[in-house]
Amino acid sequence: AVEAPGYVTVSAASFKPGSTCSAPDPVAPQRNGTSAVLRLTHRHGPCAPSRTSSLAAPSVADTLRADQRRAEYILRRVSGAGAQQLLGSKAAAATVPANWGYDIGTLNYVVTASLGTPGVAQTLEVDTGSDLSWVQCKPCSAPACYNQKDPLFDPAQSSSYAAVPCGGSACAGLGMYESSCVSSAQCGYVVRYGDGSSTTGVYSSDTLTLTSTDAVQGFLFGCGRAQSGLFTGIDGLLGLGRLQPSLVGQTAGTYGGAFSYCLPTKPSTTGYLALGGASGAAPAGFSTTQLLSSPSAPTYYIVMLTGISVGGQPLSVPASAFAGGTVVDTGTVVTRLPPAAYAALRSAFRSSMASYSYPAAPPTGILDTCYNFAGYGAVTLPTVALTFSSGATLTLGADGILSFGCLAFAASGSDGG
């Protein structure tokens, strides 16, 4: 069939998870300026670091529940809510049909880096929505520490390890991470994430080896002694946020505070995280938008969404609905939109899909527009494009429109709050 303008037809098989890692290592763009390129994969699935891939992915219901808590936390932080209000949200219970066959990777992304001397490889989730990096450290056993697949990092075995002392600038630099002096004048930290997970331990310094040619001497990170939450499949987290404790902040002198990443569409393909590259004018092929910041949540990378189109038709949503800004977050799975924008997107998408009579499927957690594509060889969707200030437009492919067979968007807090 000839595709109507504004529509895209994809093979239904493209929604199925691949069982083998089909991608060779990605060829990340080589740009002038120093650049360390790390292989980036889905947290679970055939391309995940071999040591972790066999771990069972959390259920979709758990993933969406954790995602809802994270999104609510981010929204409250940007709105300047106090710390106590930030926590304690109760995500709506999600009932999920069991007959799913779709790609249910947990849609979080990891890189592998080595810590210490000699280096111990650690699988770390990349997170533009937080700053402090951490790994679990020996001695560390359940229940204080979750059962990670890779060897635990043992500071006592690393010749380049040092605990950060109390009172020094590094400890003071933790600021919002509840740094405090613990035993033997070491600098303790606590990080509480929006999905309810947490890590606490001793703030530390060691060599982080990113690639065979790039290492960060004296990298500051959390040596976690007690963690709780959905950490299956990772050994820790690599914070890429805007504040100083993040990897980006700590390597600004080397990589200029510029970085890029590509998140693979399927667990059977790979992407990359690249530190450095020329700052200034974006290379060819990019559409760029201004980076903004939120005084109440300085960690986040914020841009200004200005419009959405479905099937090539702009939605009639007032620009004021987007006035609150848009956080660019690798750790949030589903895009959240202000209610008026989401309602308009959902209505336009549903009416475009109606002409194809795909059977409806029950809502899935926060995703309320779902279809059952079983039995269809090909699926036709209206294109969805997000436009940002300065005209940068993200025209989404099918894998950016649907997830779990559902429209992969949800409503967030108040319009333009």
Binding site: P29, C262, P264, S287, T288, Q290, T330, T395, D399
Partner: peptide, 28 residues
């Protein structure tokens, strides 16, 4: 307030420097 989630970022190279965020399609 909106959050651009990772489902919508997939396959784009997202480039962040001190002043801007750039998106390049079909990058991985």
């Amino acid at each position: 307030m909106a959050i651009l989630g990772n489902v919508q970022q997939r396959s784009f190279e997202v480039r962040i420097d001190g002043a801007s965020v750039g998106f390049k399609p079909n990058s991985c």
